[in-house]
Simulated assay, not measured.
Amino acid sequence: MVNSDSLFFIYGWIRKSSGSSTALFLTGDAQNMLCMKLAESLGVKIKSPWVVWFKASCFPALASLMLTPFIIYKICPPETKHTIDAPILAKNKLEQMGPVKQNEWIMMGTMLVTVTLWISGGSLSISTVAVAMMGLSILLILGVLSWDDCLSEKTAWDILAWFALLLGMATQLTVLGVVPLLSKSVASFLKSLSVGWHVQLLILQSIYFFIHYFFAGQATHIGALYPAFLSMHLTAKVPGTLSALLLAFNTDLFGALTHYSSGQAAIYYGAGYIKLQDVFKFGVLMAVINLTVWGLIGALWWKILGLY
């Protein structure tokens, strides 16, 4: 039986790692692309978004991935510190799997081509959607995937439908003047505080992060608040690219706040290995770590990159 401290450590490591790893790449999670599409609809157009995203996220994300296990280990050290049987179990599993199969080689090759085109697509005038469809077509034609496999991915179809609705709704809210009106009202209040855009950025990002306690899932949060908050940032004279990226990064990172904050969080909690109060305790801990690592290390890195 694994003790509660060990479970908390494992849960914390995995949850935090998933947040930082999805924030590392533009294609790390579906909502990243949605954020960039919404930003584009508000006039923040980023050339070669995959490259710009990775350059901005790589240093703070990798630093977070390396520091988090150490921080959690110090705060809540697991009782089980040595797993002597783990290498043996891993070796046995690899032997059971056997050598890499043909379909697996095809999958790796297709992913390599797809990611390469995602990176260089901007200079070649190839959209990310076209690249994704090409990759899927290759897998279908070569028999790695079947159409039944695609149809069985109910979550993917659900995301596709919701993203279309959310993107359309956000665009209409902007066109009808709701988002600009809200952003101007908040911007006027922030301006009355007589603080620079750096402080306004900190306030807006913090509100955007912690208000996720009132949302179930990340897609609904994006559809409801991302356009409005990005518009507030722009009204406060925060650089557009920096604003769009930071809001998107926070969207990935606040997925560990609660057991309902993201699809992954619900799955981890549903496994039944961690108590509900520990989930919320962990969420606060992760929020502090996220804001510290990304706020300090990230700010220095983004300054070097010239994002502000």
Rank of each mutant, 00 (worst) to 15 (best):
G168D: 12
A224K: 07
G177Y: 14
H198N: 07
L166C: 06
W162R: 14
I222Q: 06
L242V: 00
S194V: 08
Q205A: 07
Y226W: 06
G223H: 12
T155H: 15
M133Q: 13
Y213Q: 10
I211A: 12
A132M: 04
P227Q: 07
H198Q: 11
V175C: 00
I207H: 05
A132G: 07
I159N: 04
F215E: 02
M133K: 11
I138N: 08
L202W: 15
L230S: 03
S206E: 03
S243E: 11
S192N: 14
V131Q: 01
L140K: 12
K184E: 12
V199F: 07
Y213P: 00
I126L: 09
V179C: 04
V129S: 03
A216D: 11
V144R: 14
G143V: 09
K184R: 13
W197H: 10
P180R: 12
V195I: 12
F210L: 14
M169E: 07
A170G: 09
H233D: 04
H233Y: 10
L204E: 06
G143I: 08
L166V: 11
S194W: 12
L181R: 15
F229T: 03
I203N: 06
L225T: 09
A244D: 07
I222R: 07
Q205S: 09
G168L: 06
L136D: 01
T174Q: 14
L181A: 15
V195L: 08
D158N: 15
V175P: 00
D158L: 15
A216V: 10
S137H: 08
S146Q: 15
W162V: 05
T235V: 05
Q172E: 05
V195T: 13
Q200F: 02
H233E: 03
A228P: 03
L165A: 11
A161T: 10
V195K: 09
H233K: 06
L242W: 04
K237C: 01
L136N: 05
C150L: 12
P239Q: 00
S206L: 08
V178M: 09
S152C: 05
W157D: 09
I211C: 13
H198R: 11
G196C: 02
A170C: 04
P239R: 06
F229I: 04
T128G: 00
L160V: 13
C150T: 07
T174E: 14
A187S: 14
S152V: 01
L181V: 09
L225K: 05
G240M: 02
A228I: 13
F210T: 12
L230T: 02
K191R: 12
L190C: 04
L176S: 07
L182A: 15
S127Y: 02
L193G: 07
K191T: 12
T171L: 03
S185F: 13
L151T: 07
F215N: 01
A187I: 01
A224C: 10
L193P: 00
S192T: 14
L225I: 07
M232W: 04
Q200N: 12
G143H: 15
S231I: 01
F229V: 04
S194Q: 13
P239M: 00
A219G: 08
L234S: 03
P239V: 00
T241Y: 03
F189A: 13
L142Y: 10
I203C: 10
V186G: 02
T220G: 11
